[in-house]
């Protein structure tokens, strides 16, 4: 589904990703762990198409297409979703409004009819309940004045509505208490299926008790330095990143 080969990325002449490789097959859950500043968010943003980052070398294919050739919205419509580490606030734009526009953009891309107001409201209400999201949150401006936990839950809510093929979760667990963490993990687990893959970026092993990865990759200084099964996460917990 996703193949990243020898990816080099720089910002302002500073190289951040230094030959990154990762291959994700349909239905797999990959976890990327690594210390602060190792380039995890950079990878996530590059996959989503953020133009601040300059790809200097390497290639990325997604479902047979050259991903780097696509605009961010095309990647989204092709099925890539990024749960942001720091979701932005958009004052004056109702949370539901953005989401309905987004869903309909995606539907239009697939030549499907846009969802009507009521149909969308029904869908939203269903998903919302499961995530313990207040109806009030839908009417409020996108992320404006949301607590840290609300922002993260909102990202998962959006993911559930948009039903991506590849979801990249960038530290969705940080700042969550254990109850919120379980809700988020449930939100992800309920979406797992053979055609959908996840890249779960995290700093802590804690999340992986709830979202069990098929593969764990350790990222240090812009590169994956080791890959393994979920037991690698436990090793990391014990030894820290110092050994890598």
């Amino acid at each position: 589904m996703l193949e990243v080969k020898n990816l080099h990325v720089q910002v302002d002449d500073k190289e951040i990703l230094k030959g990154m490789n990762i291959t994700v097959a349909p239905g797999e859950v990959h976890s990327i762990m690594g210390p602060n500043g190792s380039g995890k968010s950079t990878l996530a943003q590059v996959l989503a198409g953020k133009e601040t980052y300059e790809v200097t070398e390497g290639e990325v294919t997604f479902q047979g297409k050259d991903l780097l050739d696509l605009e961010p919205e095309e990647r989204a419509c092709e099925g890539i979703f990024l749960a942001f580490q720091y979701p932005v606030e958009i004052p004056g734009v109702a949370n539901t409004y953005l989401l309905r526009e987004a869903l309909n953009a995606k539907r239009e891309y697939r030549d499907e009819k846009p969802l009507k107001h009521i149909e969308f409201a029904k869908l939203a209400r269903e998903k919302m309940k499961a995530l313990g999201i207040d109806e009030d949150l839908l009417k409020r401006s996108v992320n404006a004045g949301f607590s840290g936990g609300e922002k993260k839950r909102n990202e998962i809510f959006q993911m559930q509505i948009l039903e991506p093929t590849l979801a990249v979760l960038d530290e969705t667990d940080s700042g969550l208490d254990i109850d919120a963490l379980k809700i988020v993990a449930n939100g992800v687990n309920s979406m797992k299926d053979s055609g959908r893959s996840f890249i779960v970026i995290t700093h802590y092993q804690r999340l992986l008790n709830y979202i069990v990865p098929d593969f764990v990759h350790v990222m240090v200084d812009g590169k994956i330095v080791r890959s393994g099964g979920k037991e690698l996460a436990y090793e990391l917990e014990e030894k820290g990143y110092a050994g890598f």
């Binding site: 989204a76 419509c77 953005l98 987004a102 953009a105 959006q158 948009l162």
Partner: peptide
């Protein structure tokens, strides 16, 4: 970028 990542032009 946030809006475009969600699919908006």
């Amino acid at each position: 970028f946030y809006c475009r990542q969600r699919g908006l032009s």
